[in-house]
Simulated scan of single mutants.
Amino acid sequence: MKKLAYSLGLFFTSFFGYAAPPQETTIHRQIFIVHGYGATAHDHWFESLQRQMQDSHTQVTILQLPYPMQPDVEAWQHVLEQNIKMIDEQTYFVAHSLGGVTLLNFLSKRNPPKIGGVILVAGFTETLPVLPQLDSYILKSQNMHINLKNSPNKHLFISENDEYVPPELSIKLAKQLDIPFTLIPKAGHFLAEDGYTDFPQLVRYLKEILRK
């Protein structure tokens, strides 16, 4: 059977002048999406982003963090540690809200020499007046010493009317970490109920930096 297949291959090669090699898919890039408080991997714009960005060269993983209504620092960090084995210039992160605190805590401990990109959505690192139930998680995560100078691509998306994360806290974080930011009007907290089942600004940004 192998000889027959080989003979047919030679026949088509000689007859048509070219035989296309079998297509191979090689994953070159990894994008990890880290959700926030009260969310799951299936909420908001996460799966839409995954569908739009995943291809034969890019693997997009939405991390599912346990007990999202009762976040635990150790449990959430464990999920990141188990799923993110290597970080280099082909590794990109997208984190929403409390997921940003979680990601920055993780990166501060790993301190990778290179990161492809870090994108925070409604990012913050200080306690939130309207969500005091998160104070313990946030304060416990503040031992971070993160330096994003090792990431050539970083951005923070901020909503002008975020009812959970005051825009001034996100802007303060952007200045602390020297992250360029985009202020988007009437985006709420970038939730599905705010109209964010799709996130075109984030998709555009990711496609731009991946073309570099």
Rank of each mutant, 00 (worst) to 15 (best):
N83S: 14
Q50I: 02
I87P: 02
T26S: 15
V34I: 09
P66S: 08
F46S: 02
Q30G: 11
M53P: 03
H42L: 02
L210I: 13
N161D: 10
P132W: 11
T125I: 05
I87Q: 10
G36C: 06
N153W: 14
G17N: 13
P112I: 08
G195D: 03
T26A: 15
N150W: 09
Q77H: 08
H28I: 15
V130Y: 08
Y92T: 00
Q23A: 08
L128D: 06
Y205T: 04
K2E: 12
S136I: 14
I158G: 03
K154W: 06
P112Y: 12
R29D: 11
H189K: 11
A75F: 10
F190P: 04
P71S: 06
Q30F: 10
F16T: 12
F157R: 05
T125A: 03
P185D: 09
L173E: 08
K3V: 13
I62G: 04
L210T: 07
G116M: 11
L65M: 00
T58C: 03
A192S: 07
Q64K: 11
I84T: 05
D88F: 01
L63Q: 04
N111K: 15
T40R: 06
P132I: 01
A95V: 07
M53T: 01
Q52E: 13
V165R: 09
V79R: 02
H35A: 00
T58G: 07
P129M: 00
M69F: 12
P21Q: 13
I84Y: 01
Q54F: 12
K172N: 08
Q90D: 12
I33E: 12
I209M: 04
K3L: 15
Y196V: 00
G9K: 15
H57E: 15
G9E: 12
L183S: 07
N143F: 13
F12V: 02
S108E: 13
L148V: 04
P71C: 10
D162Q: 05
